[in-house]
Simulated scan of single mutants.
Amino acid sequence: MRVLLLLLNVVLSCHFANAQDSWFKRFVKKTISDTASAGQSSFRVYPTLGYSPETSFEGGLSALLIFQAKKDSLNRLSEIQAFSFFTLEAQYGIWLDNAIYGDKDKWFILGRTRFQRFPLLYYGIGPETPEKDPALIDANYLLLRQRVLRKVRPNLFVGPEVDYQQLYNTHFNQPDNHQYEKPLGADGTRNLGLGAAVVYDNRHNVLNVRKGFFGEVSYLRYAPAFGSKTDFQAVSVDIRSSHPTSARNVLAWQVYGNFNSGDVPFNQLALMGGEMIMRGYYYGRYRDKNMVAAQLEHRWLPFGFSKRIGAVAFAGAAMVAPKINAFDTRYVRPSGGIGIRYLLFPKKDIFLRLDMGLTKDGPGFYLFTGEAF
């Protein structure tokens, strides 16, 4: 299970300590300060350090740019996040996520980019797979996904979507005491999907939603005519809602569904786990053509006794199936956990999150800027 840990205790101790200034303390103060006035952009870079059995020690940098179109504080908060890593096993990668709103919400550009050389653990396909001894697929992975959406009514956006995914330089390493049948795409795959998305979004702060609703339905078609190696289609449904229960407390929930048909490569099946939903499971621990998932989270942002420190408690459940009519409640997988929050940008109401997800497979740790959903 991949673990990402910021030197959060160092940051906090430097912030509250009364020791004489040093270059590191000045760097930390600059990182966690928030002096930008309303409407002004903010940019921060901070280090990360982690360890996992698959990668050994890893280090890197995270960066966050937040801004409002035309520096107008009445416009929604846009964000661009970047995360890079390098491990002692010579694995590396860079992630980039964007949620950009135009002036008066005329345009909404929502997407993510991934490039990495990183091991992919493979436990097989289906709702019931071996509990240990996964295969290890070492490969280069590239993902480019963007939605360019136009506002058609207040909070309602419609537009095209493109998704390009490529897996290359692959090596499928079988465990010593178990043999997996090679899945579709294990020797490399390249697929381009074209489609459209409909989004309803009345959130003002994407990274920390105090109150608001987000709903998305998207469709993508991957075909040899587009340059894809396989022919399949994918439908995704994502519904999120946040409700303030007091001035500092928020109750949020999410329902997510991913439904695929056709010849779907193993890396583009519906994948359970990761940093956003079903925290605690390795991303792809369970995979199949279809998945439904839900999660509930309570946030204390921040605690009443602190100006910067908060916490969350969350729980979720999900299941995968080869067909929509084959979902079986016997294979519902639960997860839950807790997390701490640190108010990184007080004037923008943006928190740094460190979550610990718990499942039967053990704990998983996640550090990112902004909430999971």
Rank of each mutant, 00 (worst) to 15 (best):
E131V: 09
N75Q: 13
P244Y: 09
Y342E: 05
Y168C: 02
W95C: 03
K71F: 09
L7E: 13
R210C: 00
V152K: 03
F85K: 10
P160N: 04
N290F: 08
L358Y: 12
E181V: 10
A311Y: 07
L352N: 03
L6Y: 02
S228G: 06
T35K: 08
W300F: 15
R299E: 04
P322H: 14
P363E: 05
L74D: 11
K71Y: 09
P130H: 12
D201V: 01
G50L: 12
L220P: 00
L194A: 07
L343F: 06
E371F: 04
D263P: 07
F43M: 14
P265H: 12
D361W: 04
K211I: 02
V320Y: 04
F85I: 08
F108R: 03
L142N: 01
T245W: 13
V199A: 01
Q40E: 15
I340L: 11
D328R: 06
M291T: 06
S22V: 05
A196P: 00
L192T: 00
E54L: 12
R44K: 15
I80E: 09
D97C: 01
N18W: 07
A318N: 08
N169M: 05
A225V: 15
E275N: 14
S33M: 04
D21M: 12
L120D: 09
T230S: 13
F351D: 10
